[in-house]
Amino acid sequence: MTDARSDEELLQAHAHGDAEAFETLVRRHRDRLWAVALRTLGDREDAADAVQDALLSAYRNAARFRGDSAVTTWLHRIVVNACLDRVRRRQARPTVPLPEDGTRGGGLVAAPAVDRDTALDVRAALSRLPADQRAALVLVDVQGYGVAEAAQILGIPEGTVKSRCARGRARLAVQLGYLRGEDHSGNRPSGGHVPSETHRHATREEAP
């Protein structure tokens, strides 16, 4: 039977000792939390661990929820933070830079459409984005959260969310072949140049 209590009521009930309230809350939101974790981390086991860590943290800290955001926003924030923590911990592996032909010597030109398994390509390309951009894109462009809610979840200004999404999409465009650099066939486009990721990070901050 469906529990008619609101998320806030369930969390409060859990904090007051209702043994089943938290599990009800988890069951209500598990799929969306899982999708965010899986798409942010790109790895099933990592995502399972992150969700588990996050929900244990939420379980333990329910009494500290102050209600200044929706419970679901709070849960998402904890899950996203758990994901980003995992990314940072494993970042002995540096972010994969953009492909050479997308970063050096050529202008940005539209690439011809290619036949491929787009979903797989998109997932793979997402996994190569910087984690901050990936998290913003997953929330806004994949999961469909509004920029304002994503900003609450990520704890950053809305402008920064927009910037991370715009930059993330631009990188994905290169990785997915919608944009490319010099085509190496001798038909060099007009002299534009996409600097390396490191250079871009060193030279331009995200929009606030």
């Binding site: 979903a119 998109v122 994949v142 994905l172």
Partner: peptide, 23 residues
Amino acid sequence: DLLTADRLVSADLAALGADPEPM
């Protein structure tokens, strides 16, 4: 080109989000 590519990427991401991903 970026304007065109941005629309294509947005569509790809939306399509990915339309795929159910149950726990």
